[in-house]
Design a protein around this nucleic acid. Sequence first.
DNA 1: GAGTGGTCTAGACCACACG
DNA 2: GTGTGGTCTAGACCACTCG
Lengths: 233, 233
Amino acid sequence: MTDKPRHSWVTIRDRIREMILNSTYGPGDKLPRDEEFAGRFGCARSTVHRAMQDLAQNGLVQRRRKGGTTVQRDPVTRATLNIPITRLEVEQKGSVYRYQLIRQSMQPPSAAILANFGLHEARPMLRVEALHLADSRPYIFEDRWICLETVPEIKDVDLTRESANEWLVRNRPYSRCDLRLYARRGTKSDSEILQSDVGNALFVMERTTWIGDAPITSLRAVAHPGYQLFTQG
Amino acid sequence: MTDKPRHSWVTIRDRIREMILNSTYGPGDKLPRDEEFAGRFGCARSTVHRAMQDLAQNGLVQRRRKGGTTVQRDPVTRATLNIPITRLEVEQKGSVYRYQLIRQSMQPPSAAILANFGLHEARPMLRVEALHLADSRPYIFEDRWICLETVPEIKDVDLTRESANEWLVRNRPYSRCDLRLYARRGTKSDSEILQSDVGNALFVMERTTWIGDAPITSLRAVAHPGYQLFTQG
DNA sequence: GAGTGGTCTAGACCACACG
DNA sequence: GTGTGGTCTAGACCACTCG
């Protein structure tokens, strides 16, 4: 039955948030300086800073040096997607995972892939097409390009045994990730690979990653009909 | 041409990340204590803490009191989606936004909505069906339920003028948001509202929000064919 | 130039989780 | 119990940016 410490940054955050909610400070308003809040709450400035850091991260306020802290005028809904390794995703659903390499070859990247990376000149890349299966049924088909300059070791990996997805996630942390999600009607080619009806609604995820400025990989993953992507757990 | 301060937490973070990348510490390995790193780098422990906070947030390491810091065994790709107010999304694309209220009524929530909220008993809710248009073409159709106990003021809002989306985002910050994304074939009803062909692939976003434990709203938004959802800018 | 947030430090204590 | 991360403090200086 212990109370929350009066000066915990969580408490401070909730108090400030409460003031925003009850319109003590409305959208676009400037909040008091951190130091002012610190004095008012009887805590250290750094505690207010920690609270503000959290509010800013959740998009409720905006902070600028000299400009101060303002209540976000047009809040955005922020949601964090956790995209696990496909094998683990399948296994966590209690299904048996299987993986199948379809094609693998060195290719000059298509214009679309170059655009994803924001590159102006072609670089040597490895293209890998593979299918992830759950209980022997097609789960996700991925068409992936890997930059050989950034990831030369990939040439020595046996991609018939381990998926590029898994190897990369385990061995090549990225510093930036672009994501694009959309729905698409299944083509004849989709239907053959995913064993689904032509014209079915398919969920598509396009993902491009970099380490620093160096491109790592860009892929289009097409999921089986019925696939859903969630936030959190 | 100023160098980055030797003890900036960003520098410390990059150094630690580098050690993880070059396999000084591999997946599952335990990292030295923060204090150990601090001594090694010649900085304060809190600086190491700040660096670790960032690495943990990006899913590269996992931290536990007493258990120490370990390199994440199965990294997850984390992507943050920014979902703006629909009106702003449309306007930022340079299109003219229009909004159309289709239906509005008090209704007992369906079982699916109750499940979204994790509620066991029905509560009074307002159901709002509305269409967002871009350049007079259907953009997103939303079917929304709003909990009247949590948001009683919504009864006094003129939803023919302002969308529930906009009013809620501006006036009801949330503390928790669940998101579910998937693709679905358009039904006859979809095709009429969105003026698209029956059977088209539609992108669906289901979103449920709470403030504390109190349910705010739960909605299903169906986008026009061709809609894409991005990360960041 | 000057005001505000961002960071770094050194030290203290707390809280959780493992043995 | 005990070790580790989490937090809080007080103070100093830095860096961005607005006027």
